[in-house]
Amino acid sequence: MIKADNNNWKKVAFRNSRGLALAGLLYGTPEETGDIVINCHGFTGSKEGGGRALELGAELGQRGWSTLVFDFAGNGESEGDFANITLSGQIDDLTCAVEWVLKQGYKRVVTVGRSFGGSTVICQGARDPRVAGVCTWAAPARLMDLFTSFTGEPVDSPEEMVTMAGENGIIYLKKAFFQDLKLYDVPQEAARLAPRPLLIIHGTRDGVVPPTDARLIFEAAREPRELVWIEEGDHQFAKHYHQVWKTLFGWLDRHFKRPAP
């Protein structure tokens, strides 16, 4: 399903393997580019990224790349209950997004993920050879350490739900979220991406995900791999996002430049 909007972005929808409809926005067409970036939001985020994800998509369009942004199930305009989210579910959502863009006619897919979306693109890419390259922004490596720090409750209690402090107030997740996290070792997953390129971007002043997490992912990964520090960058890259974009553009040019006609 594709509906045109007023700003070069088209509203799209596709289903994950659980039957939930996922809402997305697509910039560009396979006829124009053949190459596409799937840009994944972070924990409790949305596809628009406060507008910046759409700005980035337009910039990528000027450089010959289409972009798909979408809401993970339970987030934004997608179907599902946020309390039911898991990393396995997000991996499935992204796999279905990859399948969808390939069915549209795109030939080469690169995934980009911010924060928990970054952990997602690593784990999904490790399982999907159709992904040509992976880029993370402020991705956590030690998932249990990070998410248990957001709650004062024991995650192994008999209670079904866990109360967590989110950016926009209190949120609730099922205990299954934490049980599912135990299935994934993000650095080990990163090692499975080679020989496809991996770009890790992290701010030196990230107060949410420690910069040491980026180092753990980098050291576990195999070539071709790059770790780029954004000096003074926070978790949101609030004052440095153009530097992050420039780093991404350069990486795409180096690894995915099209042959001359």
Rank of each mutant, 00 (worst) to 15 (best):
K174H: 09
W229L: 13
G166I: 13
S78Y: 07
N39Q: 09
G105R: 06
R254F: 03
G117A: 11
P195Y: 09
I36D: 03
H240Q: 14
A58G: 09
F72D: 10
W229Y: 11
Q124L: 11
A214C: 10
G118F: 03
T212W: 06
P259C: 08
I201F: 03
A4F: 06
T33H: 14
I170K: 12
Y106D: 07
W245Q: 14
V209K: 11
G64C: 05
T136W: 02
D253P: 00
G50Y: 08
I170F: 04
K47P: 12
W251G: 00
V131T: 14
R225T: 12
G76W: 04
F147L: 11
I2T: 10
F147I: 08
L60V: 05
L60T: 07
E79I: 01
L199I: 07
T29I: 06
A238C: 07
D180V: 04
F237P: 02
G49Q: 08
K10A: 15
V228Q: 08
R196M: 09
R222Q: 15
P197K: 02
L54H: 01
T247H: 02
R222D: 13
Q243V: 07
L199K: 01
Q188K: 15
H202D: 05
G51P: 04
G51Y: 03
G50V: 09
A191F: 01
G34Y: 10
F116D: 00
A214M: 09
F178L: 07
G19K: 02
D206E: 10
R222G: 14
L60E: 02
Q62G: 15
L146A: 00
R192F: 02
N7G: 01
H41Y: 08
T151A: 14
F72H: 12
V98R: 04
K175Y: 06
S119H: 02
A23F: 05
L68C: 11
R205D: 15
L20Y: 13
N39G: 04
E48C: 00
V244W: 00
L68D: 05
R63M: 14
Q243A: 12
P261L: 14
S88M: 06
N84P: 00
P140L: 14
R52W: 12
Y241T: 09
A21Y: 05
I200P: 06
L193N: 06
I200Q: 03
Y27K: 15
G89Q: 11
M164Y: 01
V37S: 00
A58E: 15
V155Y: 08
G203T: 03
T33Y: 11
P187H: 09
H255I: 00
G42Q: 03
